[in-house]
Design a binder for these strands. Structure first.
Length: 491
RNA sequence: CGGGGUGUAGCGCAGUCCGGUUAGCGUACCUGGUUUGGGACCAGGGGGUCGCAAGUUCGAAUCUUGCCUCCCCGACCA
């Protein structure tokens, strides 16, 4: 492994690509557009999953699993949804291979094994799930249905990037069905809140909650809510979406129920998801030129201990000393790794664990044994301090909390510092070039949105939910507007 | 999908233009020794279908054709 990363300031995307590899998170596979998530990267994803899963269950959701394949006739049932995804679908057309009669040892697709009904590899599961819900729902007593699935999906993207946009990715998709519009809308916003809470409290990433414009809305939804995060290069990253589906899918799949008055009505739906893209957000939001910076709550290893020693006798003494306080940390639910391998030098280990973003490093050597101390270094600020053995079990947990908070504050400050209100189009163009979120007035038309996008590459990330109503003029057309929206270049 | 670049040991690269000894270098790896408070040093060693396939040639990493990967730019991207 070669040393060092490209500098963020010189080559941001090169920095990201190298970091993903050097921190052992993931790598490109032999399959076009598909990644291999390596154990260390997957451990972070598992921590995210566990936390999200818990939050879903606390709000009454259950996990289930639906098929990977969607028969084409089901897929096309909801027209807008089908149209929106059609261009990026992988399609199974045959079910058998056979030996190539012309070249020994090669296989060909057996032309006689053509499927009568092609199967679409799910780019999202609304179709197959709503087709199933049809059988599950007869009465208002069957509602609500609150189901989530953890799955993989495939979207045949033209241009891929590890974690941010891959042809196959892992995600969760919640699909709920409700008796009333209000209840479905409440579900939609509840899940958006959960995503925002997860991003901020666990990932330490500050986000804006908002509503997508019609152009950016999920195909088949009546309204799409999202959380938008800002990366260190000032670009936006959509970190999660929650869709109010109205009765669109219920109508497309004929999902009706009798209400308490005995009248038939279509059910109301929502769907919501976050994906392995969150890994990309986590990496890009916090890390520096020395490697990954992980928020303690999602770090697979929270504390690493590195012994510094000459000879086996010294190592034995350190081993013994360390074994005294490791249980005190583990008791408190802290994950600790003691790396007393003799195959690598301390300096090498320091650099490695910095690359991998381990929040706290403890180093203990002969000097410390003499003084009854240990050197404690925090990854985010690189600060080191010497503490006594007695203090370890009390200082570490509070430092982890402090780091979690400080990482979030830094992200929040960064977003604030790079958010500007602008009312002049020329100035707008300059600011978009610089990066960050630009709050500007917009006349509400898709046409204007499209023109601004063509001229500046900026898209409307969202109409912020907590934005104040404020009279103004559209930055492009000068037409009246009642609220600012967020423009930014996005991943 | 269009334009550009790229593919040679685990990783990073040179060699390719102008075909010709045994395909090199750094790093990583293995062995031995000295080391160990920020990516150690010395000596020795192993590892290659030169992206894949076909062709030209006495001879191909090098030339030709086709295919594929990854990266950058564009289009596309709930």
């Amino acid at each position: 492994m070669s040393k060092g990363l490209p500098k963020r300031s010189e080559d941001y995307s090169g920095w990201y690509n190298e970091l993903v590899k050097k921190a052992d998170l993931a790598e490109n596979s032999a399959v076009k557009g598909c990644m291999v998530i390596k154990p260390y990267g997957f451990a972070i994803w598992e921590k995210m999953q566990q936390q999200l899963d818990q939050m879903f269950k606390e709000t009454g959701h259950e996990n289930a699993y639906f098929p990977l394949f969607v028969p084409k006739n089901l897929f096309e049932a909801e027209e807008k949804n089908a149209e929106g995804f059609a261009k990026e679908c992988a399609v199974v057309t045959h079910y058998r291979l056979k030996n190539d009669p012309e070249t020994k040892g090669k296989l060909i697709v057996d032309p006689e094994a053509k499927l009568e009904e092609e199967l679409v590899v799910r780019p999202t599961s609304e179709a197959v799930i709503w087709n199933t819900y049809k059988n599950w729902i007869q009465s208002y007593r069957d509602l609500p249905i609150l189901v989530n699935q953890w799955a993989n999906v495939v979207r045949w993207e033209m241009r891929t990037r590890i974690f941010l946009r891959t042809a196959e990715f892992l995600w969760q998709e919640g699909h709920t069905a409700h008796a009333t519009r209000q209840e479905a809308m409440d579900e939609t916003t509840q899940m958006l809140d959960i995503y925002a809470q997860f991003a901020e409290e666990y990932m330490g990433v500050s986000v804006v909650q908002g509503i997508k414009t019609e152009n950016e809305r999920f195909a088949g939804a009546e309204e799409t809510f999202c959380i938008e995060a800002m990366m260190q290069d000032g670009k936006a990253l959509q970190a999660g979406t929650s869709h109010f589906l109205g009765q669109n899918f219920a109508k497309a799949f004929d999902v009706k129920f009798s209400n308490s008055e005995g009248k038939l009505d279509h059910v109301w739906g929502t769907s919501w998801g976050v994906s392995t893209r969150l890994m990309g957000a986590l990496i890009m939001a916090h890390s520096d030129d020395d490697g990954l910076i992980l928020p303690p709550k999602l770090a697979p290893i929270q504390v690493v201990i590195v012994p510094i020693f000459k000879g086996e006798e010294q190592l034995d003494i350190i081993n013994e000393k360390v074994s005294e306080f490791i249980p005190l940390l583990k008791e408190q639910g802290i994950s600790v790794k003691y790396d007393n391998r003799t195959t690598h030098k301390p300096g090498w280990k320091f650099a490695q664990y910095e690359m991998k973003g381990v929040p706290i490093r403890l180093a203990i050597g002969p000097k410390d044994l003499e003084n009854g101390t240990i050197e404690m270094a925090r990854r985010d600020t690189k600060e080191k301090q010497t503490i006594s053995f007695e203090e370890i079990s009390s200082i570490i947990p509070s430092l982890l909390d402090e780091m979690q908070d400080s990482i979030y504050q830094k992200s929040l400050n960064f977003r604030m510092d790079n958010s500007t209100k602008i009312d002049d189009y020329e100035e707008f163009k300059k600011q978009i070039e610089k990066g960050g979120f630009v709050y500007a007035h917009w006349d509400g038309s898709g046409e204007t949105e499209e023109k601004i996008k063509t001229e500046t590459k900026a898209t409307i990330r969202c109409i912020p939910i907590d934005g104040e109503n404020e009279e103004g003029k559209c930055i492009y057309t000068g037409k009246p507007s009642s609220k600012r929206v967020i423009f930014a270049k996005a991943y």
